[in-house]
Computed example of a mutant assay.
Amino acid sequence: MMLESLLEAELCFPQLSNSSCKKIMRPSTTSVFLYITLSFISLITVALNMLVIISISHFKQLHTPTNLLLLSLAVSDFLVGFLVIFQILLIDGCWYLGDLMCIVYNILDYVITTASVETMVLISIDCYVAICDPFQYPNKVTQKRVCICVSVCWIFSFLFVFVVMKENLGEPGSFNSCSGECVVVFDQIAGLVDILFFFIGPVTTIIVLYLKVFVVAVSQVRSIRSHVATVRLQGSVRVTAKKSELKSARTLGVLGVAFLICLCPYFCLTLTGQETMFSASSFAFVLFYFNSCLNPLIYALFYPWFRKSVKLIFTLKILKTGSSDANIA
């Protein structure tokens, strides 16, 4: 009798002893740590990215092409914060929400993740054009073009997810080996396209563009230092403008590097076929989602406008008439 009770405690659905999945058994302290860590990441991710969304949406001065890209990234990061809640439910390795919700969750996860990856590619392109072709930047990178590119990214993510998950949509749960499992399967072609378009391709593009930006930025810094002592007033204005561009590029570069550091371990484990839900790869999984919390912290560290806007939000000054026209740059 005691043995039966122990076996039931290890099952996701004790009433389905023959078909139920087994729970992941771990020390209670480890489970509590995971609960607290993921809950903290979820709360902070939602709160910080909400501040970014409010800031860029409310203040007209922040309606720049670069900030529109940051807004798209903040929206995806904000939604990731809610997705972490589902992962909290999966700490013991059991899915209790049914097969249909499993598919819905995976679709949302796929769309948000791929849109985030595509947005990071757009941010790297924006940084590249701003540093390597600054004179043509205002003509090449406009608000209208950025809005179109962002819209295409999200629409493409929505459409492509139904292509890669077509086998799972017809009969949800058909690939589950036991009750309490949440599994989706891609066919070989869809999996290959997914890896090329949403991992290898984007990562390669981001690395190549940022390396080019780094080379040009170093060259410009040397140029500024060699002329800073002899420039006239008009020249000093140009130098100041260049320094501003380099600072912005540095911030976007930090954003890109952080993204790659958090993204690559997760995808590398996925490519090797290892389980990514709180097993040996738990660190890579948490790191992947922590990136959505890290991005607003980078803005707070490097962007004065974000710190000023947050101050106005917490003091409720954004509720005043004309607050959207405030100078916070």
Rank of each mutant, 00 (worst) to 15 (best):
Y128E: 11
V129C: 08
A130G: 00
A130K: 01
A130S: 12
I131V: 15
I131L: 12
C132T: 08
C132H: 03
C132N: 15
P134D: 11
P134Q: 08
P134L: 10
F135H: 11
Q136P: 01
Q136D: 14
Q136T: 07
P138G: 00
K140L: 08
T142L: 10
T142P: 11
Q143D: 11
Q143V: 07
K144I: 12
R145T: 07
R145V: 09
V146Q: 10
V146I: 08
C147D: 03
C147H: 13
C147Y: 12
I148C: 03
I148S: 08
C149I: 08
C149Y: 14
S151N: 09
V152Q: 00
V152L: 00
C153T: 14
C153P: 04
C153A: 12
C153W: 01
W154S: 05
W154V: 11
W154R: 05
I155R: 10
I155M: 13
S157N: 09
F158I: 13
L159V: 01
F160Q: 00
F160E: 03
F160R: 01
V161M: 10
F162E: 06
V163I: 14
V163W: 15
V163R: 12
V164K: 05
V164G: 00
V164D: 02
V164F: 02
M165T: 00
N168F: 02
N168W: 05
N168I: 03
N168E: 13
L169P: 00
L169C: 04
G170R: 15
E171C: 04
E171M: 06
E171S: 06
E171G: 00
E171R: 08
P172H: 09
P172S: 10
P172D: 07
S174V: 05
S174Q: 14
N176G: 02
N176C: 05
C178D: 12
C178F: 02
S179H: 13
S179K: 15
S179Y: 11
C182N: 10
V183I: 08
V184E: 00
V185H: 04
D187T: 09
Q188L: 13
A190Y: 05
G191H: 11
G191V: 04
L192Q: 05
L192N: 15
L192E: 11
V193H: 15
V193Q: 15
D194S: 09
D194H: 08
I195L: 12
F197M: 14
F197N: 09
F198A: 04
F199T: 01
I200T: 14
